[in-house]
Design a protein around this nucleic acid. Structure first.
Length: 835
RNA sequence: GCCCGGGUGGCGGAAUCGGUGUACGCAGAGGACUUAAAAUCCUUAACCCGAAAGGGUUUGUGGGUUCGAAUCCCACCCCGGGCACCA
């Protein structure tokens, strides 16, 4: 009997599958499309991590079952190769990013092939391919033309190590999410996408999609909708100590100070105002003659590192502005302060401070001797100290008070616009041209952005040139800004000297639309608008037509951007759907010995070693077995052995079913008889078989792979003990196929001599009539405590069961000296005697 | 601080429209095969007392509801993740 040698059979079948193209659906004619998409990896290190394998295998098993259920499963793969992480890795190993990408691709694809997934290899994409980023740039052009891309100078997050700006989403606790360096503030002019225009739709859309709840919650929090009011506080003469008198004389004009609040019902309690350093800065630039103390404070606040400002959150700082404002509810003058606990980019950049009803205001007031109250009550209730509103409910008072003082009700979002520009090399060049002459003449493609022109569609892609000084300059100018041949262009309007935009776009733009590109990778027409998209991504959600799988760490980055871009494409009439992924499931995190795997801890699992030592099938199956897929779990070497033993037993049992003369011979497809009708299994194995079909099918559908593997183990045991027939074993083999595709194929074709792949066979169906055997286990309890369990006929009736229980010796022992009060019967399950 | 998960044998984990707690696997113990080892197979296996029969205890802690609670309710503790001066 030949040995089970995964090292030999796995590459063999991978090669045959590829040649036979069994995982390549006909994208134009597939009758039952199922888009099984998984987040593609970014090739930023030596190779794929076992965590990637975990994610891909889990998604692949789902797709494999769907394929066997008759769906045309499309499971593409590719590389998210642009971006800071890939570029940083290239610099670390001292290779040009372009060369590194070329080197990484075969390595990554090789690993992805080795795990044995049913990828549609022909459709792979790499985001750094000019034919790919042509359309990334095309999307940018559309964003510009539709008014969704704009430039703005603002204080942005700057990573001193990566020497580029970061989106808010890429800053974690004041540090760069890539390298952990403390982020600083920097004033720069940058490109933004107006994702905030879509805040409400991004929020509402979540209600209609089937996503991991955790991710939905994260997105809701990130969008952060809050209802409130805009209220104007007229600025008055400086009762708070401004020697120079009225505000107007301080160079501010007869302005009023506008604030946003979610609690207009607390307006009567507003005893001072606070202006953010950012707003104060704007005032100063507009000519506000503030004290030296204010100027100094503003300057210091704005140059502080993000982290310092967060750290000081407990101990608040601030200075009096030397201004006073009038509380429109009470008519009283209240002082204005400048303090950095108020953020410049939230609301109006200024607040009304209500120490009685806001912890932060209270803390600030206490420190500077401003409070008149001893305790804070943040919760809503019934108003007091609010004149004629006393006794009114908070909710009603919010509306009434806003109305009274002429405030404007407003919904505000925490979400900020998407900062697109990156001052790096390894990304898609932003396809824009700037002409100073046109700008001076007030001309431009868009009236609100004089001097700016999008690169014409026929001129796309704007090719990223190979330059040797690709390293970040650190000056806020992209490396492409040193390349004359790149940036010197003619103005598309006036023909004069113009300058090409030298920043590249955020990598998240690359990955915000790749799912569309897969549907048309080789054509030069936009994938975005094809018939294939309508076929594979219909707007309606009837049935399990698509599944997106990936890590929960992308909850608010990728998964928000991809929805935004889809909504924009929808609005431009390019795609019928608004939500690209009707169903999304996040896999859990794989850990090692109780902690996150990381290079610094030296506990990173290299999947290649396991594939070499145990085989891909064993690794796949172990990964699925170790914990619930959506929960993640602990990778332990010892556990791999159990799965390896199981697969060896599968192999050994299969060998007992191979007739000596059949072994190794492969019948031709032409002579293959029609599939036999469902076999009538031997009584011993039948219930186990049907139970397993039900369990494995349902478990895969719910991504409960760990219990599906367990069910397969139980079934194999039943087959071994019941001496299951080849027909019965074949059912088992089909259930096993998604988990151990190579082994199943080797037995099916190599050993049993079938011509066509098992992965194209029909998924087994179970017969409910066969689920239960004739015997059931009846449990006897006394006062809820189990005393005995007996095997009995499943036809047993209530009275019979009760009699059986009362006559049971162990039950009688437990009942000694007690009177039976009540007997509870649960049909065919248990009898509980209350005594 | 707020929002999500989650606490079950020596270990990973099963079982939640309330009904035999610990499936499946790992490690352990005993045995078979072998000159021996590896591999493989069989048996055993929550914990405590007991030679056994049997009895008692147990799903983070404390209460509650119920004939019956890992599961439902209340309070609390611990771990993991996310957000965080968002007005």
């Amino acid at each position: 009997m030949p040995k089970y040698e995964p090292g030999a059979i796995e590459p063999k079948w991978q090669e045959i599958w590829r040649t036979e193209r069994i995982y390549e659906p006909d994208l134009d004619r597939a009758p039952r499309p199922f888009y099984n998409l998984m987040m593609f990896p970014y090739p930023s290190a030596e190779g794929l991590h076992v965590g990637n394998m975990y994610a891909f295998t889990g998604a692949d098993i789902f797709g494999r079952m769907k394929r066997m259920q008759g769906y045309d499963v499309f499971e593409p793969i590719g590389l998210d190769g642009f971006g800071i992480h890939s570029e940083n890795y290239a610099m670390k190993v001292g290779v040009h990013p372009m060369d590194q990408a070329a080197k990484a691709a075969p390595r990554f694809y090789g690993q992805l092939a080795a795990i044995g997934n049913g990828f549609a290899w022909d459709e792979r994409v790499e985001t750094y391919d000019p034919e790919y980023y042509r359309w990334t740039q095309w999307i940018f052009v559309q964003m510009f033309r539709k008014g969704l891309a704009y430039r703005k100078t603002q204080s942005v997050n700057w990573c001193p190590k990566d020497q580029t700006v970061l989106a808010d989403e890429q800053v974690e606790g004041g540090k760069c999410e890539r390298c952990g360096t403390e982020v600083v503030r920097k004033e720069l002019e940058q490109w933004f996408f107006k994702i905030t225009d879509y805040a409400e739709r991004l929020l509402k859309g979540l209600d209609g999609i089937d996503w991991t709840e955790k991710v939905k919650i994260a997105q809701r929090n990130w969008i952060g909708r809050s209802e409130g009011a805009l209220i104007d506080f007229p600025l008055a003469a400086g009762a708070a100590g401004a020697a120079s008198g009225a505000a107007s004389s301080q160079g501010l004009g007869n302005k009023s100070l506008r604030v946003f609040t979610t609690r207009p019902d607390t307006l009567f309690g507003a005893t001072f105002m606070v202006v953010s350093p950012e707003l104060a800065e704007r005032w100063l630039r507009a000519g506000w003659q503030a004290s030296e103390e204010v100027k100094k404070y503003v300057k210091e606040s704005l140059t502080k590192r993000e982290l310092e400002r967060i750290d000081e959150g407990k101990e608040k700082t601030g200075v009096p502005a030397g201004l006073a404002a009038v509380n429109p509810a009470t008519g009283k003058e209240i002082p204005v302060w400048v303090a950095d606990y108020v953020l410049g980019n939230v609301g109006t950049g200024a607040i009304m401070a209500v120490p009685a009803h806001d912890e932060r205001d209270f803390a600030f007031a206490k420190k500077f001797g401003l409070p008149v109250v001893q305790v804070v009550a943040e919760e809503t209730g019934v108003l007091t100290g609010s004149g004629r509103f006393d006794g009114m409910d908070s909710e009603k008072a919010k509306r009434e008070i806003t109305k009274l003082i002429g405030g404007e009700r407003k919904v505000q979002y925490r979400l900020r616009d998407w900062l697109i520009s990156r001052q790096r090399y390894w990304g898609a060049p932003i396809p824009m041209i700037r002409c100073d002459a046109c700008a001076a003449a007030g001309k431009g493609e868009r009236a609100d952005m004089p001097g700016w022109y999008a690169v014409g569609e026929s001129d796309l892609p704007v090719i990223l040139p190979r330059i040797e000084n690709f390293r970040p300059t650190g000056t806020g100018v992209s490396p492409l800004g040193t390349e004359k041949s790149f940036y010197e262009v003619k103005c598309p309007a006036c023909g004069g000297h113009a300058r090409r935009e030298t920043d590249v776009s955020d990598t998240f733009l690359d990955s915000a639309w790749y799912y569309l590109r897969y549907l048309d990778p080789k054509n030069d027409t936009a994938a975005l608008n094809g018939a294939r998209v309508a076929k594979w991504l219909p707007p309606e959600n009837d049935g399990p037509m698509r599944l997106y799988t990936g890590g929960a760490e992308h909850s608010v980055l990728h998964l928000l951007y991809v929805r935004f871009v889809a909504m924009a494409l929808h609005d431009w009439g390019l795609v019928a759907f608004e939500e690209p992924f009707k169903k999304f499931r996040a896999h859990g995190l794989l850990i090692k010995d109780g902690t996150k795997m990381s290079k610094s801890k030296g506990n990173v699992i290299n999947p290649d070693e396991y594939i070499t030592n145990f085989g891909a099938d064993t690794l796949r199956m172990y990964l699925m077995f170790l914990a619930p897929f959506e929960q993640g779990g602990d990778f332990r070497d010892a556990g791999v052995l159990g799965v390896e033993r199981f697969l060896k037993r599968v192999w050994a049992y299969a060998e007992t079913l191979v007739p000596a003369e059949d072994a190794g011979k492969v019948k031709s497809a032409a002579r293959e008889p029609a599939p036999a009708p469902a076999p009538a299994p031997a009584p011993a194995v039948a219930p186990a078989l049907h139970r397993a079909i039900k369990k494995v099918t349902e478990d895969i559908e719910n991504l409960h792979y760990n219990t599906a593997v367990s069910a397969l183990m139980i079934l194999l045991r039943a087959i071994e003990e019941g001496k299951g027939s080849r027909e019965e074993f074949t059912v088992f083999l089909k259930l096993l196929a998604p988990f151990a595709p190579h082994l199943a194929e080797e037995i099916w074709r190599g050993r049993f001599g079938n011509a066509a792949s098992i992965h194209r066979e029909a998924w087994p169906a179970y017969d409910p009539a066969h689920l239960a055997g004739s015997a059931i286990t009846l449990v006897f309890q006394v006062n809820g405590k189990t005393r005995d369990a007996v095997e009995t006929e499943s036809s047993i009736g209530e009275e019979e069961a009760k009699a059986l229980a009362l006559g049971n010796r162990k039950v009688q022992n437990a009942l000694e000296g007690k009177t039976v009060k009540k007997v509870i019967y649960v049909d065919k399950k248990l009898v509980n005697i209350v005594a």
